[in-house]
């Protein structure tokens, strides 16, 4: 018999890297920017975090450095898309390629070293897991209750209108991108510092791409991101848990399910918006489009 509580506790920890990355990407997309470079920013954070944790012996300094590293590399994307007005999809893909290469290059001296161990937080659960959970209400509050969040959403929904109201569209988006980079960096570092305790190139192994799917699943809400991270993480944990218990599972088909669920959620929300003409929900109005002020 599988104890649901144990599965739940497993998935909360397992979902942490994708939760961080997806929460960051949520803010980015809410500002109207589609950054497909999450994987590149995660690996940058995994490396810079590991390097700092190793150098200082303090994992928490590592996570701080991961945030800085992720944000730093995301600024390349910000430069391309906000200053040089390059296409976001292509720039994001290039960022992933660049980030994976750069991290592999700079990570060579760190191979085979073990990360300093971390003290567990309350209930024996890592502090970073708790931080990830705490970010959910914080980001919800920021997006829905704060003035800055209102501006950010305005920029994402209709950049022309936001500009007309005098808000600095590029600056807001740049800040959102940097925040997204920092969050992705922390998510990546959770893999290197807290999960594997070593640096190996390519170690994020596609987690950034899952984070992108989670944001869509979330319907661009913080609570939705949490649900999505738990669903995506949960399906993996559950199928592995079932296997461990000796139950035969169709792994490939099961791992397809969350993506199909994401499409269904997206369709349902889009349809509700289309047919009832209700405002809100679904993708931000200016998602993926660059802005250039004509005046």
């Amino acid at each position: 018999m599988i104890d649901p509580l144990s599965v739940f506790l497993l998935l909360v920890a397992a979902a942490t890297p994708i939760l961080f990355a997806a929460l960051g990407e949520l803010v980015v997309e809410r500002a109207g920017v589609l950054n497909l470079g999450v994987e590149g920013m995660m690996i940058a954070g995994a490396l810079s975090g590991f390097a700092a944790a190793h150098a200082t012996g303090n994992p928490f300094v590592g996570f701080l450095a991961a945030a800085v590293g992720g944000a730093a590399i995301s600024l390349l994307f910000a430069l391309l898309t906000q200053v040089l007005l390059a296409n976001q999809v292509a720039s994001g893909l290039a960022l992933t390629l660049f980030g994976l290469g750069l991290a592999a290059l700079f990570g060579k001296p760190l191979e085979g070293i073990k990360a300093p161990s971390m003290t567990a937080g309350p209930l024996g659960i890592s502090w970073i897991v708790w931080l990830g959970l705490a970010m959910v209400p914080l980001i919800w509050w920021f997006l829905n209750r704060s003035r800055a969040g209102l501006i950010l959403r305005g920029v994402g929904e209709n950049h022309d209108a936001a500009h007309a109201l005098g808000y600095p569209v590029h600056l807001v988006r740049g800040a959102a991108i940097a925040f997204g980079g920092a969050m992705a960096g922390v998510g990546g570092a959770f893999i290197s510092i807290a999960t594997v305790l070593q640096w190996t190139e390519g170690m994020t192994a596609g987690a950034g791409w899952i984070a992108l799917a989670i944001v869509v699943f979330s319907n661009w809400t913080a609570v939705g991101v949490l649900a999505g991270a738990w669903l995506f993480g949960g399906v993996t944990v559950l199928q592995l848990r079932l296997q461990a218990a000796g139950i035969k599972v169709p792994v490939q088909l099961l791992s397809m399910a969350p993506y199909l669920a994401t499409i269904i959620v997206l369709v349902l929300i889009s349809a509700r918006q289309k047919f009832s003409r209700r405002a809100g929900g679904a993708a931000p109005g200016s998602l993926g489009q660059n802005f250039h002020a004509l005046r």
Partner: peptide
């Protein structure tokens, strides 16, 4: 349904 083709095609 008005679903974003960017996102649906990526999920697929």
């Amino acid at each position: 349904f008005g679903a974003s083709e960017i996102l649906v095609s990526l999920m697929l």
